[in-house]
Amino acid sequence: MDEYRVAIESEKQSILQIEERILETENKLEEYKELAAEDKDTDLFSDMQNKLDEYKLVSHSTAVKGEGVSIYLDDATRALMEEEPVGNVLVHDSDLLTILNDLYGAGAEAVSVNGHRIANGSSISCSGYTVRINGQFEARPFRIKAIGASDRLASTLLGPDGYGTLLKDYGLIFKLNMEEEVEIPAFPEEHSYRYMLIRKEGETN
């Protein structure tokens, strides 16, 4: 019964999203039709250029600035308790993943870790004493920057159930500052793909 409930709710929410996109496309189409009919090619040109800039922005290919938070994260300096595993006082890749996930949940639009912009394909993996981010090796301390509503971003991590609070309870160093403006670099590489191709709508295999 539960599966039905979730599936129905899931489909309903998807429909809302699609309807939003239909509305957006309808408006755009009207605009384009007018521009095309009146032969206003320069307007069409600038509109398409704007759209291109928007796609660059949301694919994390543009350096950005805005309201947000900066976080400083480091291993605990306290001594281990008897028989306590050493992992308790160290920053792990899963800690970074959880912090990022919580930031996105609170509406973060752009995030960097030690200066590396997180894009769609970015992974954060532990490799011994270092962590690999976007294929580059980084070590503690970790500096995370995120752009979004700074109060939401701060409260999701610093609330009583927040992950930052949990890390602090373990003695790790977790400092968060709300910032009027943080700057985050662009994802540095060309987006090139070896395996995936665009699938045209309605195409069948």
Binding site: K51, Y55, S59, H191, N205
Partner: peptide, 14 residues
């Protein structure tokens, strides 16, 4: 546009 849409996850892929 197509290239960056792909990088943003805004097109269906195979």
């Amino acid at each position: 546009q197509e290239k960056y849409k792909m990088a943003a996850g805004l097109v269906e892929v195979k």
